[in-house]
Design a protein around this nucleic acid. Structure first.
Length: 546
RNA sequence: GCCCCGCUAGCUCAGUGGAUAGAGCAUCUGUCUUCUAAACAGAGGGUCUGAGGUUCGAAUCCUCAGCGGGGCACCA
């Protein structure tokens, strides 16, 4: 069982701050007091501009307010002391509390109960299964997976889903391309020309007896489903290589078989959101100024949008998720308002449909085109730089930033890759712990952490104190990229701590004094657990030796 | 034309409206007979694209402009 820690020291400080503010006589609305990390060491660890904020409300001198706040504030457990500085109140974590924290850090430290068992679905990476994943898709699957890991870590009940398109225009073209290859022909206009389509046709010839004798009308759906299943298998294997897991591969045709799109269309028709025009059926919400969208084409075929209407029913109603998070590449951003207004029209709260957009991944060499079959696949990328580096590299960037993927650089990445820096810190700690157990086989069970007095020791503990904040912020904003930056900061403190022993041997972890060794070991253990936990959230391995 | 994202050190990027804007890489200078040097210590490097505005306070919010990328289907 992972111990659940509810919030970090920042939450305690914030509570103490709010309490003190109320005692100043501020009731009702308290403005955002902006408690954040102090940027300069002399300002302590956390700082708030509460004095400046409250000056307006109280019509008093900010300095006076700040001084009174600093006097009044008592942070629980004596975790931090407050001091006034100009219009700011600064908080400094106390050495005693930092020492106490070390012993409380267990595997899974930083886990929280923000979700309180809320059932939600994260749908991510749902690329048309008409080809292998390329490096752009890699971003979506690793981002989605880490968001899931974060949500699970913070007490949400998460279902991870890949939506498999099977009945849309693209997959039909895919089926038609396989059919063409089966008969030694070039794929039709707008079809898929990659080598793998030829392979699929050959495999289908073996596996589907007599398929080449059927007319296209009959053969294409069979070939399509066959090829899609093969591609899904391959996609599944690829994402597994980067530690991405799905609970469900939800096929589009399943929607139609269970009548959900039909049901959605029926309801929207009744509520007046659908209208006929030019022989087609259109969706439009009279209350917004979005353009109308086709649901059923003039030729009678439904669009992907019809499926998506049913998919909304499937998730919000049939399967009853409280919240659905979708991770899309930014080229789909134009579809966001449509989906939101469709959700609203079907009677769901559109704010429960959270859509995360990530920017594209470009190759410096030139654009990718899936249909032309010219792309660098995710598999190739993993082959070249390794799973850990792939995940770290993707997650390092905010979703809003376009990644310019310099393949040459990625391939030659070795020591300059930040993933090694973090992993090395973990491996070092593991090694030190192994050395200690050899030199001191019978160490005391309990550590006397009061022996930890050096700044480089307490700075490791200080960094550990910040971890729950990072978890909280990453979860609230659904921004896993904050994690690698934290991991880097923690690794820095670990390396410094370790290096103190290189400079002077009495500062090593493993020394003659068993009590001192035991105390430092406790710090190593806490830091190692935290590094491991953070790397896990990224899907990056934490090696014991390198 | 309309919509979305970006513009921060030579390069790649962080930076919930707060104090003196950070990191990695690259460059330069030091540190291994040692618990792992894939490390550590230090130096240089900035008109936060530009102009207005809001605010006690703006890289951050608003408006306009520029540049780059993406999108505006009876494709997804």
């Amino acid at each position: 069982m992972t111990p659940v820690v509810s919030g970090g020291v920042r939450d305690s400080i914030n509570e103490a701050l709010l309490d003190a503010v109320r005692r100043l006589g501020v009731d009702g609305d308290i403005p955002d007091l902006e408690l954040g990390r102090a940027k300069v060491a002399e300002h302590g660890d956390y700082a708030t501009s509460a004095g400046l904020k409250l000056a307006r409300v109280l019509h008093q001198d900010p300095k006076a307010i700040t001084a009174r706040l600093a006097e009044t504030i008592h942070v629980a457990e004596g975790a931090a002391i407050a001091e006034a500085s100009g219009g700011y109140v600064n908080f400094r974590l106390t050495d005693a509390w930092l020492r106490g924290l070390i012993g409380r850090v267990q595997p899974g430290y930083g886990a929280q109960d923000i979700g309180r068992g809320v059932r939600l679905q994260v749908e991510f990476g749902s690329v048309n299964p008409t080809g292998p994943l390329h490096i752009g898709h890699g971003r979506g699957v690793t981002l989605g997976d880490s968001i899931c890991r974060l949500l699970e870590f913070t007490g949400h009940s998460v279902q991870r889903e890949y939506y498999v398109n099977s009945d849309n225009t693209q997959t039909r073209r895919f089926g038609a391309s396989v059919y063409a290859r089966l008969h030694g022909l070039e794929p039709p206009e707008g079809g898929y020309t990659g080598e793998y389509v030829i392979e699929l046709a050959e495999m289908a010839r073996r596996d589907l007896a007599g398929i080449e004798n059927l007319a296209e009308e009959e053969a294409e759906p069979k070939l399509r489903m066959y090829a899609i299943n093969k591609m899904v298998e391959r996609i599944r294997a690829t994402v597994a290589r980067v530690n991405v897991r799905y609970d469900e591969w939800y096929y589009e045709n399943r929607l139609w078989e269970s009548g959900l799109p039909q049901e959605a269309i029926q309801r929207l028709r009744e509520s007046g959101h659908l209208k006929e025009r030019d022989g087609a059926l259109w969706f439009g919400d009279p209350s917004d100024d979005e353009e109308d969208r086709v649901v059923i084409r003039a030729n009678g075929q439904p669009t992907y949008f019809a499926s998506d209407l049913g998919y909304l029913l499937s998730r919000f109603e049939q399967r009853g998720y409280n919240r659905v998070i979708e991770v899309w590449a930014a080229d789909h951003h134009g579809y966001v308002p449509r989906m939101k207004s469709a959700a609203a029209a079907l009677g769901f709260d559109p704010s429960k449909l959270v859509i995360i957009l990530h920017q594209m991944v470009n190759l410096k060499e030139g654009k990718m085109s899936k249909r032309a079959g010219r792309f660098v696949t995710l598999d190739e990328l993993i082959d070249r730089v390794g799973s850990d580096a792939v995940r770290y590299f993707y997650l390092l960037r905010s979703p809003d930033t376009t990644i310019e993927f310099d393949l040459e650089l990625a391939v030659t990445q070795g020591n300059e890759n930040p993933v090694y820096y973090a992993q090395y810190a973990h491996a070092r700690l593991a090694n030190v712990e192994a050395t200690a157990s050899q030199r001191h086989p019978h160490l005391a069970e309990k550590a006397d952490v009061s022996l930890l007095v050096h700044p480089w020791e307490l700075d490791v503990a200080r960094q550990l104190a910040f971890w729950p904040d990072v978890v909280e912020d990453s979860t609230a904003l659904l921004e896993p990229h904050r994690i690698p930056y934290y991991v880097h900061d923690l690794a820095t403190e670990v390396h410094r701590f370790y290096h103190a022993g290189n400079a002077q041997s009495e500062h090593r972890v493993v020394v003659d004094d068993p009590a001192l060794t035991r105390a430092r070991l406790e710090l190593c253990r806490a830091a190692r657990h935290t590094l491991k936990t953070a790397l896990d959230l990224m899907g990056v391995s934490a090696p014991e030796r390198m």
